[in-house]
């Protein structure tokens, strides 16, 4: 585990790259497999000799494409909502890129996520459809459509018919059934307009809060390595007053536990003293230590314990919905999907 913390620190440039070539190669394969090679390149570019510059150039060219695509999608989104009073809040990658945060540098982005007020949802959906987005095929069936609309915090994903890009329109940050109730209205009220744009992002503290919620109160934490690095950079992006805000704000909106966990992770994994100090005074989730073990174990990939995986999977659903919904849902999903078994990509090196 110590070695893995080292890997995270090397990726963000807190520790020098391994001198031994095989170790260096292994680290870069690890970064690539977890989609953070671009971030590694952005953090380390220019400081090295030899082939690594080619590899970093390559990674940066790829993320430049993602960012350009995202900017165009933002442009198209604004265009689609032209003439309305709706000012969507960009979430996650889109927000980091729009604000040019450290968390955006070299980050891969594929979809655009936005948040609107629930009462605006129908109009936004209608306008996006008019502008060429349509229900994505993956969820374009009665069950998924109804499931999303009844229980989820977002519309079923929409894909643009010509460009093929996906937009997720949220009205909440967590499913309606989720255990954590987040003060979404306060967060929306605190959002800030992006200059010369009809789009907004959360205030800096809320940006961090949302990322923490996304990682720890929702989903199965699909890509923990990327998630940890995101928290680290978002924390670096907060100035002193933002950090003070963060504690207050987390409590106000009811997200102390996920935020506490995220800050703890930044402190523990990246030895960030500010985060360590801050985490001491913050609430931790139930079963904190067990969870901590599971998360870290998952981040270590190849070493993944099936138990940790199962724990996270059940937890993610436990967080999203009460048992009476959970059991039928998981059963239904099991019948509907039957996914192919795909082992994670083997590392080519021992």
């Amino acid at each position: 585990m110590i070695m893995q913390r080292k890997a995270l620190k090397q990726i963000v440039g807190l520790k020098p790259l391994p001198e031994k070539v095989l170790k260096r190669i292994k680290l870069m394969i690890f970064a690539d497999a977890h989609h953070v090679l671009g971030q590694m390149a952005a953090a380390l570019t220019g400081a090295h000799e030899g082939k690594i510059n080619d590899v970093f150039d390559n990674a940066l060219l790829r993320t430049a494409h993602d960012h350009r695509m995202l900017h165009f999608e933002m442009n198209r989104l604004e265009r689609a909502l032209e003439g309305t009073e709706i000012t969507p809040i960009l979430l996650k990658g889109a927000a980091y890129v729009a604000r040019d945060l450290k968390a955006a540098q070299g980050r891969r982005v594929s979809d655009i996520d936005i948040l609107v007020r629930e009462e605006e949802l129908d109009q936004v959906e209608k306008l996006l459809m008019q502008a060429g987005w349509k229900a994505d095929q993956e969820t374009d069936n009665e069950y998924d459509q109804e499931y999303y609309r009844q229980w989820m915090h977002e519309l079923p994903p929409m894909r643009h018919g010509k460009r093929g890009t996906i937009i997720d329109v949220h009205h909440l940050l967590l499913p309606r059934t989720a255990r954590y109730k987040i003060g979404i209205d306060q967060m929306i009220d605190g959002a800030r307009t992006i200059e010369a744009s009809a789009l907004k992002t959360f205030c800096p503290a809320d940006v961090f809060i949302h990322s923490a919620i996304h990682a720890f109160a929702d989903g199965a934490f699909d890509n923990p390595v990327r998630g940890f690095i995101e928290h680290y950079y978002l924390f670096q992006d907060l100035n002193e007053s933002d950090r003070k805000d963060l504690c207050v704000r987390a409590e106000q909106v009811g997200a102390e536990k996920p935020v506490g966990l995220a800050v703890w992770c930044v402190g523990f994994l990246f030895s960030d003293e500010n985060a360590q100090k801050m985490a001491k005074n913050m609430k931790k989730p139930m079963l904190f230590w067990l969870l901590r073990w599971a998360l870290i174990s998952k981040a270590m990939d190849g070493l993944t314990s099936p138990l940790a995986k199962a724990l996270l999977y059940i937890r993610s659903h436990y967080l999203r919905m009460p048992m009476r919904l959970l059991v039928p849902h998981l059963t239904r999903k099991a019948i509907q999907w039957r996914p192919m078994s795909r082992k994670p990509v083997d590392l080519p090196l021992p």
Partner: peptide, 8 residues
């Protein structure tokens, strides 16, 4: 198809 609402 247009990219958004169009008015005269």
């Amino acid at each position: 198809m247009a990219a958004g609402p169009i008015t005269d």
